[in-house]
Amino acid sequence: MSKFSIEAFVNETKENSQEKDYFELEKPELLEINLNNQAVWTKAGSMVGYVGNVNFERQGMLSGGLGNLLKKAISGEGTKLMKAEGTGRLYVADNGKKVRILYLENESISVNGNDVLAHDQSIKSDIKMLKSIAGVMAGGLFQVKLTGTGHIAITTHGHPLTLLVTPDAPVFTDPNATVAWSGNLTPELKTNVSLKSLIGRGSGEEFQMKFSGNGWVLIQPYEEVYIVTK
C-alpha cells in the first residue's frame, strides 16, 4: 500500500477510539467531548462535527439573569456560548488554535472571553468587564470568570507561556496577548503615555494589564484583535 493512498490517509488521521475521557484532545487543535446523556457549554460556532444524538441550543440573551444582558449584547461572538446535550462524541475547535484542558476543583480561573472553548454545565460562568475605557481601545475588555468543579477547555494561538506573579514582582502584559489568569487576581489597566506618543494611537502596546499579588498569568505569542459586534 502506498503511503499516499486514501487508506493510509484515513489510518493516519482517523480518531483514536481507545481514549474515551469526558474531555480529551483528539488533536492539539481539536477537542473531543464524550457526552453520556449530559450537557456541556461550548463556544458558539465551534462545533466541527459529532457522532450520535446531540442537540444544540444557543444561549439566550437573558440566561444568567438580567445583570448579564447588556454585557452579552455588546461583547460579541467571543463570549456567546452554545449548549450541547445528548449522547455521542462532539468535536469542537476554534480557527486552528491550540486547545488546553483544565480540571477545576472548587477553583476559579479568569479567561479572555474569546479563548473559552468549552466547560462543564456544573461550572459557573460570569462575564466580567474591566472598568476602564482603555479596555475598549486595547480590545481586552471582556473576560469570563469560570468557577466550580469540572472540566474546561481554553484556546491559545501557538504555545502559551505562564508567568508567575508575586508580591515583589508584578507582571505586565499586552491585553491582546493575555489568555487567562488565576481567579484570585484582579488586573488593572495601565496607559503608558510616553509609549503612546512614540508609536501613535494605532498600536496596542501603550495599554498594559498589571497583575499584582500571588498567582499566575497565561500569555500567547500572538496579539489577537477582537471585534465587537452589535
Rank of each mutant, 00 (worst) to 15 (best):
R58A: 09
H159I: 04
D126Q: 08
T229G: 08
N37E: 15
V99F: 00
E205I: 15
D94N: 04
I154F: 00
I133F: 11
V179M: 14
T87Y: 03
K145R: 12
G78C: 13
V54K: 00
H119T: 02
T87S: 15
N37V: 05
E15T: 13
Q143P: 01
Q38H: 04
K14G: 02
M61N: 08
G204C: 08
W41F: 10
V51K: 07
G76L: 11
T87E: 13
A153H: 05
K3F: 11
T13A: 03
P187C: 11
S203H: 13
I133N: 06
E224Q: 14
L102E: 13
K145D: 02
Y50V: 00
E107R: 11
K43W: 04
T155D: 00
E205A: 11
K190C: 09
V136K: 08
A8W: 06
L90Y: 04
S110H: 03
E57N: 09
S212D: 15
G135C: 06
D126H: 05
G67T: 02
N184V: 14
V225R: 14
K71V: 14
T155S: 03
A44H: 05
L218R: 00
Y22G: 03
S108N: 14
Q143Y: 15
T87D: 12
S108H: 13
L185G: 14
K128N: 13
I123E: 08
M137T: 02
F9G: 04
L141N: 01
R89N: 14
L31E: 10
S75I: 07
V99D: 00
K145Q: 11
E188A: 13
E206L: 08
K128C: 08
E205N: 12
